[in-house]
């Protein structure tokens, strides 16, 4: 039940966002994320966009490893 879904925002209107998760579109609540815009990537849980995704996975891994060495 707790699995997050990362998705691209297609459209935002009246607190609801249409998202595209690997081709599957659905409506989710944008009620707890301000300033969402089409093109943003978000993490979705139980029908609610809970966080913006602000960086690429590979970039983040590079930064973490650089810090370690």
């Amino acid at each position: 039940m707790c699995v997050g879904l990362s998705a691209r925002v297609v459209n935002v209107k009246d607190g609801t966002a249409v998202i595209d998760a690997s081709g599957a579109k659905r409506e989710v609540s944008a009620g707890i994320l301000e300033d969402l815009e089409p093109g943003d990537f978000v993490m979705v849980h139980a029908g609610v966009a809970i966080a913006k995704i602000t960086q690429d996975e590979a970039e983040e891994a590079d930064e973490l490893m650089e810090d370690l060495l």
Binding site: A51, Q55, D56, E59
Partner: peptide, 29 residues
């Protein structure tokens, strides 16, 4: 890749011996 890097950070920092907190998921958290 997120889990493997987070695990590597944990192992390395545990080796150092000091208590630590690291955010390895800054792209979301």
């Amino acid at each position: 890749s997120e889990l493997i890097t987070a695990m590597a950070v944990t192992v390395r920092l545990l080796e150092k011996g000091e208590p630590f907190f690291r955010n390895c998921y800054t792209r979301v958290v």
